[in-house]
Simulated assay, not measured.
Amino acid sequence: MVIKKIFNNNAILAKDTNRHEFVVMGCGIAFKKNVGDKVDESLIEKTFILKHKDASEKFKLLLEDVPTEHVSLCYDIIEYAKNILGVELNDYIYVTLTDHISYAIKMFDENIKNSNVLIWEIKKFYQKEFAIGVKALEFIESELGKRLPEDEAGNIALHLINAQVNNSTSKVEDIAHQTKMVQDILNIVKYTYNITLDENSLNYERFVTHLRFFFQRLNKKQIIESEDDFLLKQVKSKYKKAYECMLKIEKYLEMTLSEEEQLYLTIHIQRVTQR
Rank of each mutant, 00 (worst) to 15 (best):
R206F: 13
I12D: 02
I112V: 15
Y191F: 07
E254R: 13
D184P: 00
D228Y: 03
Y75T: 00
I77Q: 10
F108C: 08
I175Q: 03
Q164E: 14
K248L: 15
E141R: 01
N162H: 05
F31Q: 12
S237T: 10
L148F: 11
E152V: 05
L253I: 12
L263R: 12
G86K: 00
V39Y: 05
H268Y: 15
S142P: 00
K171N: 09
E129C: 07
Q274D: 10
T192P: 05
I224S: 14
N111S: 14
I101A: 06
K241H: 10
Q234A: 06
A242T: 03
I3P: 02
L218R: 04
K241E: 07
L158I: 12
D40H: 09
C27H: 14
T196E: 15
S56A: 14
L231D: 08
A157K: 09
A81W: 00
T179E: 11
I224N: 10
N203P: 05
I195R: 06
F139G: 08
L62E: 08
T192Y: 06
F31T: 13
K128A: 13
L265Q: 10
F139T: 06
K135G: 02
G36V: 11
E150C: 04
V172F: 03
S102D: 01
R206L: 15
N114F: 03
E88W: 04
N8E: 03
L43H: 08
R206M: 15
G133D: 04
K4N: 07
A153P: 04
L211D: 10
A30E: 02
Y75I: 04
I77F: 00
F48E: 02
H70F: 04
E250Y: 08
S258W: 03
V95C: 01
W120V: 12
A55D: 09
Y204W: 07
K58E: 14
C74L: 01
L43N: 10
K233A: 11
E64R: 04
E260P: 05
V71H: 01
I44Y: 07
D99E: 06
T256R: 14
K113W: 03
I161C: 14
I29T: 03
C74K: 00
E110R: 14
F230L: 11
T68W: 04
D16G: 03
V35Y: 10
M246R: 00
K233G: 05
I175A: 11
V95I: 07
V95K: 00
E244V: 10
E138Q: 13
A163E: 06
I44W: 06
E261Y: 01
Y92S: 13
D109E: 12
W120S: 13
M181L: 09
E141Y: 04
E64T: 14
T273F: 01
R217C: 09
E250N: 11
E173V: 09
A176L: 13
R212D: 10
V66W: 02
Q262L: 15
T256H: 08
A157H: 02
I29V: 11
Q270L: 10
K180H: 09
